[in-house]
Computed example of a mutant assay.
Amino acid sequence: MRPEGVSVTGLGQKVIEFIEVEVTCDVSRVKPAADIYWRKGPDGPLQTGTTSSGLNQDGKTFHLQSTYNVSFSRNDRNTKLYCLVTRHGNETDVWATAYQTISVACEYQYVT
């Protein structure tokens, strides 16, 4: 059973260049439990976060949550950070995706 909902939160309006932020992916009502991967841009390498799972009240489906710590550079402006939900043990069988577009604020340090 594919998830009923997938959402990504944590990036806010803007992130500061090279400052690590924690993002979260919530996956609701999936069966069996799935794997969650992160990808910066459509072709970036798959990364894993810290995933927790729990059984929903119906006793048949799972709620999953993955947290991922990541930093961005100005080159990442307008890149999408994807959360990919895959069939357990098969990272190529993507059941669902969600993403947030990255807006990077650059801070400059002047040397005097």
Rank of each mutant, 00 (worst) to 15 (best):
M1L: 11
M1T: 09
E4R: 11
E4G: 11
E4W: 07
G5I: 10
V6P: 07
S7E: 14
V8D: 01
T9K: 05
T9C: 04
G10M: 06
G10Q: 08
Q13T: 09
Q13V: 08
K14T: 15
V15F: 04
I16P: 04
E17N: 04
F18R: 14
F18G: 10
I19C: 13
E20P: 15
E20W: 09
E20L: 08
V21R: 07
V21S: 03
E22W: 03
V23E: 07
C25F: 02
C25I: 05
C25V: 07
C25K: 10
D26I: 04
D26L: 00
D26R: 05
R29F: 12
V30S: 04
K31I: 00
K31C: 02
P32R: 12
A33N: 13
A34E: 07
A34F: 09
A34T: 01
D35N: 13
W38P: 05
W38Y: 01
K40M: 00
K40L: 13
G41P: 04
G41H: 06
P42W: 12
P42A: 15
P42R: 09
D43F: 10
D43L: 12
D43P: 03
G44Q: 11
G44Y: 00
P45K: 15
Q47L: 06
Q47A: 11
T50V: 15
T51S: 13
T51Y: 01
S52Y: 11
S53E: 06
L55F: 01
L55M: 12
Q57W: 07
Q57K: 14
D58T: 02
D58K: 01
G59T: 00
K60I: 05
K60E: 12
H63A: 11
H63C: 10
H63D: 15
H63E: 15
H63G: 13
L64A: 00
S66H: 02
S66A: 01
S66G: 02
T67M: 01
T67H: 03
Y68S: 04
N69L: 08
N69K: 08
V70Q: 00
V70C: 03
V70E: 02
S71W: 05
S71Y: 10
F72N: 02
S73I: 08
N75Q: 12
D76I: 14
D76P: 03
D76K: 02
R77S: 15
N78D: 15
T79W: 10
K80Y: 02
L81E: 01
L81N: 10
L84Y: 05
L84G: 13
L84K: 11
V85K: 11
V85G: 03
T86D: 00
T86Q: 05
T86C: 04
R87Q: 11
R87W: 01
H88S: 13
H88Q: 15
N90I: 10
E91H: 13
E91S: 14
T92V: 08
T92Q: 13
T92L: 06
D93K: 07
D93Q: 07
V94D: 04
V94A: 01
T97V: 07
T97I: 10
T97R: 08
A98P: 07
A98I: 06
Q100S: 03
Q100H: 02
T101D: 05
T101E: 13
T101V: 06
T101Q: 05
I102D: 07
I102K: 00
I102R: 00
V104M: 01
V104P: 06
A105L: 14
A105K: 04
A105W: 05
E107K: 14
Y108S: 15
Q109W: 09
Y110T: 12
V111P: 06
V111Y: 09
T112G: 10
